[in-house]
Design a protein around this nucleic acid. Structure first.
Lengths: 248, 248
DNA sequence: CGACTGATTGACTGCCCTCAAATAGGGTGG
DNA sequence: CCACCCTATTTGAGGGCAGTCAATCAGTCG
């Protein structure tokens, strides 16, 4: 069990004493814990339950009563809303440290706003309803932190709506490449590597699979990116940033 | 000065004693005050400043430092985001009782997320930064209430994005007619009356002015609505509701 | 009776989606 | 190592929704 002494600002020795914390990856950080005292964080961790997740697994379903708050610990998740015909409206990626199920605390009546699905193997940390209530009672500052998180969602959503309304398919694709690269890109020898299939990119950029393929091919011909199966390598972000803006 | 004794749940006699409250329209209600004690509401009112507004006036500008929280008291406002080319991305209507400038409390650093413009004569009630801080200190429950409000914005935004992505121009128009009718419709002798120009409707439904005109004409020919200059009369909401859904 | 703003209609255009069909990568079992 | 399968990807042809542009008509107000 790797408990190496990293200098993550949150993995204080005190936390490492709990059994659960020992199972957390080293260097694990979450906006959710920022603003909580170490003691509060410890208490929160003690009340949480850990769980493994697999690709395709639904972590919460929109419309269902919100009964738990959870944190993605490892892996990747996707938040989307379902269309009536079963289509998926991609909203955002979930990465290690991202909180979900905020509706459990925030809304009344508490119902999940979105559907969240795991897209990689991983694990999460969950609090049931009684634990949530205890948590907010114990930490009033939590509400303010949540406000901030939700406000950021708002901002991102407005951006997405703006993109969908004013930008062309090509611009949305470029924008999504940049956004995704920032979130889930690794720096490799030839540029920024992204584990995304054409289809995933198409869904996230709100573009048909075919136009996504065409634009990617075009960009590959131009030499500003390289593709393999299920993987995209961007030579540089700035090129795509300039396409994503609608300044020209 | 009309101080008739309505049974609005908020216009308690105690509030009416303040000078400002006397200037409030009778029956005035706001989600913002729900969950505040009468004493807190009174204190809040005492700290507020009232202001008149006129059509076209910008009440807040996206990106600018958020320095005040305010409540629309009378009139109508529109919240939108600007595109780079000056185009407007309509987000929602503001009606009497609606709070704005929540970023002042919620975000750090505090910057307005959206631009808000008055579209009718009216008035607002504003709190400056010091008053805001005092208010949240005095009323911790405010944070929870704000959470709820912001979560509702989120929900509405996701719906809008969903509509923009999965629905046709016609469906979006029908949906927007329903949404607008609920918010600013009056019940008249021939149906629900809406003060909207074709252009306003087009902007709110994210449709070009011309397609809006065409669809409205079509619906008028079908006899399910009637138009005058700057005014639309819907015979019944249910017809448009069924168009708005994408069940068929 | 102009002047202005709002509404209408037609013709044209283009982005991007749909559908069909073929190709290629990557893993598996024989 | 090769045959095979399944999935990801590519490419072309065709079509439709809805946007742009231009011109005209119709209320309203001074």
């Amino acid at each position: 069990m790797d408990t190496g002494h990293r200098r993550g600002r949150f993995t204080a020795a005190s936390l490492m004493k709990t059994a659960l914390a020992a199972a957390l990856p080293p260097g694990f950080r979450s906006t959710f814990f920022e603003g909580l005292t170490a003691a509060d964080s410890k208490a929160a961790l003690a009340a949480a339950r850990q769980e493994r997740i697999s690709p395709g697994q639904l972590l919460q379903r929109e419309g269902e009563p919100a009964t738990r708050l959870w944190l993605l610990v490892t892996g990747r998740a996707a938040a989307y809303r379902l269309a009536h015909d079963g289509g998926k409206l991609f909203l955002r990626w979930g990465l290690p440290g991202d909180p979900f199920g905020l509706a459990t605390i925030v809304r009344a009546p508490a119902r999940y706003l979105v559907t969240v699905e795991a897209v990689q193997e991983g694990s999460l940390l969950a609090w049931d309803l009684p634990s949530c209530r205890a948590l907010v009672l114990r930490c009033p500052s939590l509400n303010k932190a949540l406000n901030s998180v939700v406000a950021n969602y708002l901002d991102g959503l407005i951006d997405a709506l703006s993109a969908r309304s004013f930008q062309t398919a090509e611009q949305r694709l470029a924008r999504m490449l940049v956004v995704s690269a920032r979130q889930l890109g690794r720096t490799g020898p030839e540029g920024i590597e992204l584990d995304l299939t054409n289809e995933q990119l198409a869904v996230t950029a709100q573009v048909s699979l075919f136009t996504a393929t065409r634009k990617l091919s075009k960009w590959q011909d131009l030499g500003i990116l390289k593709k393999h199966r299920g993987k995209i390598v961007l030579r540089s972000l700035s090129l795509f940033e300039s396409v994503g803006k609608d300044i020209w």
